[in-house]
């Protein structure tokens, strides 16, 4: 993945700041990369290199940890994150059908991000709201008792939001043009 101009500097600065607040023992590794992901949304390669240097461990050890745990992402996530609960209760109440619907509508598989980076689709183990199954987390908001129809509804809301925003932007641009 290519970084945009300025991104590398930002990654380095943020990582350095986080590293400053931690010791250099091996057990700091997971808390450090958790914080990096919280700030940057994912674990960029330069950040992992920087962490490895600070803790004086091989980079591949950081990579081992980053690829082992579900939490860590090596690529930037989509603008909207959709997490379908695949806990037992949700599965029994049709969670897999909901996942299918998202896959079909977004034309991506679980674990992927749409090419326009609007949506990423993930599965999560039990969210702990089994009585409300099947459950979907849309940008951390819990959607309860989701049906395939609701899937369409959720995505439609985002589409409308986006097109309205585009209209506003377009209008602004046009108005800007008139002024010139």
């Amino acid at each position: 993945m290519e970084l945009l101009p300025g991104e590398l500097e930002q990654i380095k600065a943020e990582t350095a700041e986080i590293l400053q607040q931690h010791g250099t023992e091996r057990q700091e590794l997971i808390p450090i990369i958790q914080e990096i992901q919280e700030r940057l949304g994912y674990l960029p390669k330069p950040a992992m290199e920087q962490v490895a240097r600070a803790l004086d461990i091989p980079e591949v050890d950081v990579y081992s940890v980053a690829t082992f745990y579900n939490q860590f992402r090596l690529n930037p996530p989509g603008k909207h994150q959709i997490k379908v609960c695949m806990g037992t209760a949700c599965h029994m109440m049709g969670g897999h059908i909901v996942m299918d619907s998202f896959e079909r509508r977004l034309e991506i598989k679980e674990g992927e991000t749409t090419p326009d980076r609007e949506f990423s689709l993930e599965r999560v183990a039990c969210v702990g709201c089994c009585a409300l199954a099947p459950v979907v987390l849309v940008d951390e908001k819990v959607e309860a008792k989701v049906s395939p129809i609701r899937v369409d509804g959720i995505l439609l809301t985002f589409e409308i939001e986006k097109s309205e925003q585009e209209k506003v932007e377009e209008k602004e641009q046009q108005e800007g043009g008139v002024e010139e």
Binding site: K45, M48, E49, I57, P58, E59, V60, D61, V62, Y63, S64, T67, F68, Y69
Partner: peptide, 28 residues
């Protein structure tokens, strides 16, 4: 004590690999 390779991924996808999954010649 080179630190070029390690176990990456988990479960069935676990494998021996390098940082960033690059070919060995591009690693440490």
């Amino acid at each position: 004590e080179v630190g070029a390779i390690g176990f990456i991924n988990r479960g069935f996808k676990r494998k021996m690999g390098t940082f960033g999954d690059v070919p060995l010649a591009e690693s440490r």
